[in-house]
């Protein structure tokens, strides 16, 4: 399955890049996560247990994320794998940043390819794409909130 999305930050591109690379900020933006634990011998790879879901249908997923292909401050790749709710999720997303001079906003676009198997795939198929859209929006919003006010452009 392919997903795409856009999120706009009210900050300059360098600030947005720094928050995206900040594992403490990422941990704080993921519900139920206290910290991202680095995986030994694998660069730029962390593991965490997160409580994800929508309304009553939420559960604990244990997963790992890896950052690669970093081209600061323009783009990088995020690879995610997780297990939970009797399901397995694998995905990779390419994240692009672009600064809009006129609006003084940084526009993040993401393109993801993901596979879901198990219970979520068999019964939740009709809502997977809006669920991904909703949860990714929540994640970026939670990151955005952590940008200090003096670094905001508006």
């Amino acid at each position: 399955m392919k997903f795409t999305g856009v999120f706009t930050f009210n900050a300059d591109q360098q600030t947005v890049w720094e928050i995206l690379m900040d594992t403490k900020a990422i941990a704080q933006a993921l519900p139920g996560v206290e910290e991202l634990i680095p995986v030994a011998d694998e660069p730029d790879t962390w593991r965490a247990d997160a409580k994800l879901g929508i309304a009553a249908i939420s559960g604990t997923y244990s997963g790992r994320i890896r950052m690669s292909e970093q081209q600061p401050p323009d783009k990088y790749r995020l690879t995610v794998s997780g297990e939970g709710q009797q399901s397995i999720i694998n995905g990779t997303t390419l994240i692009h940043l672009r600064y809009d001079e006129e609006q003084k906003k940084t526009i993040l676009t993401w393109e993801a390819e993901a596979s879901v198997s198990g219970k979520l795939a068999s019964i939740g198929q009709r809502v997977i794409s809006p669920a991904v859209k909703m949860m990714s929006g929540q994640f970026f919003k939670a990151l955005d909130k952590q940008i200090p006010s003096e670094k905001r452009t508006s």
Binding site: A56, I57, S58, G59, Q85, Q86, K119, I123
Partner: peptide, 21 residues
């Protein structure tokens, strides 16, 4: 806790163990 009214959305989700109040 969850409220149970008619149970025709909640109980199926519980039986699938997607929700475990």
């Amino acid at each position: 806790a969850k409220l149970l009214a008619g149970g025709h959305s909640l109980i199926p989700a519980m039986k699938l163990r997607l929700t475990q109040p």
